[in-house]
Design a protein around this nucleic acid. Structure first.
Lengths: 227, 227
DNA sequence: GCAAAAGTGTTACCGGTACACCCATGT
DNA sequence: ACATGGGTGTACCGGTAACACTTTTGC
């Protein structure tokens, strides 16, 4: 490896992960009390520096593995944040990613060990640096994805009712979709399979549980919901 | 500035600019024969390393100024490209940007001096590294922008006919929009102003020239065209 | 008059929205 | 029987697409 670019300076480069989950009918983000100076103890996204021979995405997956014990989950790059003064003491460029994680899959012990806590996206605490902005960008990108692809598989249990999916979309877009129309729209996409089972906890009649078709891969529908 | 992160390695970080213009009824990208090894002479995007105290966007604007003599143009970050082997000889992470430039504004001498050439997006030559992929990502993002905001101001002369705008959209989306419906849609947005002048080069009747309203800022329309 | 491009009008259809209504069941 | 949430049906409205039609003017 020839030292071709020696006259140009190198820069610390990191990734930060916006980890979304869905629980208690809310869309939530995983935050940690920062464990190094400066601003130790303030809430922040979990991140890490990018290794010498590591892609950004692999760095993000490594962070996910260390954070929630999973790495085979949906992950998408959002944007680079590069204001020279975004960290007060040293120059770091950080690339934000967002990840989608079903609430029942993550390693709770691992999260607890680092004092991670889940915050609803509409009620975030004070965050270090530009992490608030990262979350907002990530949410924008996630909404775009959810508007063109049914995102239930990543965030709901394997089997779920249409109502649960409806509530998920309500939480993502912070509005209330008409249940009748939502049901029709979603079923018309042809990617869900009705199971024989019913969910009976919340109603007397019971609601059919659905799951994604086995071979379902992310599609690009015309428009599931308006953004 | 305390050396906090000394145990983590720094990485070369660059920006690459996908510069779009519109001429001869085609959407084109500016490419250069690479002027340093490796692969000197192959076609590539214009890029540059990010300085110590420089944001990614400022680095991209600096590249634009060096390349086309303009920096006050539309610029948007696309994505980071970070495969450790994307450059054969040394590790460089590059953030792709795209820019929109009216064909009559750029500094032709400056472009010619570096042997820059414009290529239609549907007929690109062989490109170095992952630059083809960068252009495709940039085009995707640009199409998204054009679907929600009228992009004529950035790419057409100050005054233009509806037909020209129609042709621009045809070129961006590589399809043909119905002229009648396109006209109605575009005028209904209420952002164009009819001028008293007519363009008579291509027709006997002559077509009215329009321009963007003085106070027009990028809006987020529901949907101008389907993506 | 006719060709050519600009510009207007018409119609059919589709998808989103609102909302009324029926269904199944536990109490 | 009735309350409750699940699920279906329908009617309206606006946007989109396709395409016919009118206008203007140079030749």
């Amino acid at each position: 490896m020839a030292p071709l670019y020696t006259e140009y300076s190198k820069i610390h480069i990191a990734v930060d992960c916006v980890i979304f989950t869905y629980s208690d009918e809310k869309l939530k983000v995983l935050l940690y009390p920062r464990n190094i100076e400066p601003r130790r103890g303030d809430w922040s996204l979990m991140g890490g520096f990018v290794g010498d021979r590591e892609s950004l995405e692999n760095a993000a997956r490594r962070v996910l593995m260390q954070t929630v014990g999973l790495s085979d989950i949906f992950l998408e790059q959002v944007s680079g944040f590069s204001n020279p003064d975004r960290e007060p003491d040293e120059r770091v460029i950080s690339i934000a990613f967002y990840a989608l994680m079903s609430n029942d899959r993550h390693n709770r012990e691992l999260v607890a060990k680092h004092n991670g806590e889940w915050f609803p996206v509409d009620n975030l605490p004070a965050l270090i640096f530009d992490h608030k902005e990262m979350i907002e960008s990530a949410l924008g990108r996630f909404r775009y994805k959810a508007s063109r692809d049914l995102v239930g598989r990543e965030l709901l249990p394997e089997k779920f009712t249409i109502k649960q999916l409806n509530n998920l979309y309500d939480a993502i877009f912070q509005r209330s979709f008409d249940t009748s129309n939502f049901r029709k729209k979603v079923l018309s996409l042809g990617v869900l399979l009705q199971t024989p089972d019913k969910e009976t906890g919340s109603s007397k009649k019971g609601a059919y549980l659905y799951k994604f078709k086995r071979d379902y891969a992310a599609k690009d529908f015309d428009r599931i919901v308006k953004v």
